[in-house]
């Protein structure tokens, strides 16, 4: 295959060649699926970790700050590869879908069946709405800068409201032990985690509370700003690691 093909000389593959290229598509897709389920899930578990594992870690300050910031990494890198070389605007959605599959498998089999936690206590968050918008902005803008600024910001800003329908109900107040708790806190108290004392939770800490009780928008905008930078960084990491050298030999 030549990189110097011009418009008039381009002819789509037909017959056996077309079938082989299609088989190659599926082969890469299946490999990508397993690769991203494993690698992105591992990356996410090691970096976002407890904020995504437990319902009583999903607070209004750190959870919306940390999760999109880490969640935009692989999508940016994969978008760089798929968009730059193939004009495929599905990198973010593909990565996040793989992440969702990986986290659900881990939560059901490792946390529930192996360690006996109720699944509702360890339900993962979703980044799919954010990923869809990120892919859409990249496709419409065809620009790293625009996608980093507007897509990265949207990725972070959409995270908390997109997940509130899932987790809002866990914030209903409960009276227990002469104190006020949320249902999420009750999960943390009741379902014993030997290695997870309450004081380890990094929730509601730090100077984000400067703006009092409106910490969530502040966290979300802080995350949006950081996501624009993180997106750009990981876009370049994706470009750096990816190659089309083998395609050119076909």
């Amino acid at each position: 295959m030549s990189a110097k093909l011009s418009k008039p000389t381009f002819k789509p593959y037909t017959g056996e060649k077309a079938r082989i290229t299609r088989a190659y598509d599926y082969l890469i897709l299946v490999l990508a699926l397993f690769l991203f389920i494993g690698s992105f899930h591992l990356h996410f578990a090691l970096t976002v970790g407890d904020w995504d594992f437990w319902v009583d870690w999903k607070d209004r300050q750190w959870w919306p700050l940390v999760t999109p910031l880490i969640g935009i990494t692989f999508p940016a890198a994969v978008q760089a590869v798929l968009w730059s070389n193939f004009r495929l605007p599905l990198g973010a959605t593909l990565c996040v879908a793989c992440l969702s599959i990986g986290t659900w498998i881990a939560r059901v089999f490792a946390y529930h069946y192996w360690n006996y936690f109720p699944i509702n206590m360890v339900m993962p968050s979703t980044l799919l709405p954010s990923a869809l918008v990120l892919d859409g902005i990249l496709m419409l803008s065809n620009s790293l800068t625009v996608t980093a600024i507007f897509g990265g910001s949207a990725f972070a800003l959409l995270f908390y409201p997109a997940n509130w329908p899932i987790f809002g109900m866990f914030h209903l107040p409960v009276e227990a032990g002469n104190s006020q708790l949320t249902l999420a806190d009750m999960f943390g108290f009741q379902y014993i985690r030997t290695g997870m004392p309450e004081y380890l939770r990094i929730i509601e800490r730090g100077t984000l509370r400067t703006y009092g009780q409106i910490a969530t928008p502040l966290s979300a905008f802080c995350s949006a700003l950081l996501c624009t930078l993180m997106y750009t960084l990981w876009w370049h990491i994706g470009k750096w690691f990816a190659t089309t050298r083998y395609l050119k030999r076909i």
Binding site: M1, S2, A3, K4, L5, S6, K7, T9, F10, P12, Y13, A18, T21, R22, Y24, D25, I28, L29, N85, F86, R87, L88, P89, L90, T93, L94, V96, A97, S100, T126, L128, P129, A131, L132, D135, A162, T244, L247, I250
Partner: peptide, 27 residues
């Protein structure tokens, strides 16, 4: 959300992907 995401992925996956798109882009 998984349904919407899957629909978006299938929208693109139903067409020839890597080699053909690479060739077309280069052309």
């Amino acid at each position: 959300w998984a349904l919407l995401g899957t629909a978006w992925l299938l929208w693109w996956v139903r067409r020839p992907l890597f080699i053909e798109r690479y060739r077309m882009l280069q052309a």
